[in-house]
Design a protein around this nucleic acid. Sequence first.
DNA 1: CACCCTAGAGTGAACGTTCACACCGTGCCG
DNA 2: CGGCACGGTGTGAACGTTCACTCTAGGGTG
Lengths: 339, 339
Amino acid sequence: MKRRPNGVSRPTIVDVADVANVSRQTVSRVLADHPRVAPATRLRVEAAIEDLGYRPNRMARALVTRTSLTFGFAAVDMRDLHFGDTCAGMQAEARKHGYYLVVTKLDFEDDRGVGTLETLLTLGVDGIAFFPSFMEDTEIELFASTSGCPVVMIGRGSKIPHVVSIALDETAAADLIVDHLVQSGKRRIGVLMNEMYPKIVHDRFVALGRAITSRTDGVEPPVEADYPQISHGRDAATTLLQRRPDLDAIVGFNDTMAMGALLACHDLGLRVPEDVAIVGYDGIPFGAITSPPLTTIVQDSIGMADAAFKALLSCVQDGTPVEGEVVLWRPELLIRGST
Amino acid sequence: MKRRPNGVSRPTIVDVADVANVSRQTVSRVLADHPRVAPATRLRVEAAIEDLGYRPNRMARALVTRTSLTFGFAAVDMRDLHFGDTCAGMQAEARKHGYYLVVTKLDFEDDRGVGTLETLLTLGVDGIAFFPSFMEDTEIELFASTSGCPVVMIGRGSKIPHVVSIALDETAAADLIVDHLVQSGKRRIGVLMNEMYPKIVHDRFVALGRAITSRTDGVEPPVEADYPQISHGRDAATTLLQRRPDLDAIVGFNDTMAMGALLACHDLGLRVPEDVAIVGYDGIPFGAITSPPLTTIVQDSIGMADAAFKALLSCVQDGTPVEGEVVLWRPELLIRGST
DNA sequence: CACCCTAGAGTGAACGTTCACACCGTGCCG
DNA sequence: CGGCACGGTGTGAACGTTCACTCTAGGGTG
């Protein structure tokens, strides 16, 4: 048996076999619910398993089956509620299908995140879902093509070979926001980004820029680009509003940033939404209880998680290689008091 | 090489050995930075590794070394910011020491969580840290004593054999809160709990009850116990305040619950803190931006995470069995506008 | 010159499991 | 009654790695 730091050893399949007076293979068959085991034998084996408190070693199993029934999930920060919800959604789905989810923080310093994904591979996961916060598309493609397992990217709608991309339709989302703001009479729209997720930010920023220029044609300088060095939305928004006091609307990269902008407006004595309207992304619960409550683009994190899991599962089960597919998610604008 | 669903195979140590014209053992020595390898050979092996994109298989390695350099972490919900911060802290610490953290959701339905921890074991982790949301102490003891690896419990200060407990000093925290409320002239204190984490709730509830009875001696019915069926603090607080309109203070199990109570007061036209004072636990960032901002017991999630990691690491390195130790964390009351 | 030591490299076994195959006995069919 | 199918079980090999040991060549020492 296995000797471990606390002095206890875990029994192996051979220990069970000895107790039940059968061969390892018979125990293995019982574990796999194989039909050709005599009922009496099965009972003896099950008793031995119970007695010894035996649990199969998934690593040894994975080594020979080349399948660990484990998927990897990686994001920069699980406390971000959009990432967290997606993670929880995948976890639930995995559980339903007998899979296990190994979750890890995606680390910028670790080769922009590729190193983290590589580590997941060495851990033997059967597939990987991740948010591409820092990685270049070419890096992702290289990783996916050498990974030996299906790879799903969430949050960015680029078409990358060997990768399934699941993402919000940023163009549609930007259109929803800008249409709404323009209808509310807003014309000078500022955009508040966040350097934490440059790759996701980029698409969103570009989409908003396009939507703004196309809607507010020539009336006013259409967009104020801002990649703040400071992560906190409050400071970023304060800086932005001091530099551009004529702004009448601010779109935050996510709800947290937008809530920072809300505070900045309070600080500066600006009324929301009369002086400045504010919009966020994600639809986190806290956004409902700010004053005024936050207008936001709701992301269907659970739906995306389901789609991600199913993509991984079908690849693994069919053995079909991933071809590079983009699944766009339809955004929904939840209009509340801040606009 | 390894055949996988996307048709790509990952090279093994033997592939590297073949390319570099050495034996597997020599490659293994290069990987382990063994001194007795000729410089020329080392270079050849490193080139082969780079060429093939080889990464060692941690499962195979763990199988023979009986060490995976991996710790498991489990909590009910990573989106809870206290759990999330602790997780992030452990992840950072693990990374520093060359360890990998496998994170998982603790599932009530899975044998009250024990099943989840068992699965972590079958995955081959060298140690486990977890929040004991549903498990009975006896179950935890049984698990720990048969686990074969060090086990750290965070969030509950029970002395359990074979388990290191790291927890907030609930008595001290309750004293801080109640002293402060009494000094502010409050006498009828309601307590708002949350059925999601019954085991943590219990200690907190008991500590608050003791503190309240000892401070508000006989003047008024001292404590209103409430284990709401509804998880949302707003509903729970509304119910509580309708049933006990005489309450002049509410303590929430965590900041999220307390924020719900804040909303309930707004709903009912009660002024905070004049009519009802509100206190939470955890010190999450959103608590700073409510109106009024939330008074709260700050938990040092990162410090606890460090302590948990170090406990696991020293057990693994020294091979010393865990004896059952309780580490209490000193609470800090952050007084803001809600009291 | 015999001896031993050491640097550098390789070989078989083991970790805990499953896969492919072989084996044996029994019952049914022709 | 011979043959065959099949239920039930066991055995060797393999998965990818490291450990413990062995081997070889060369150099220093007495």
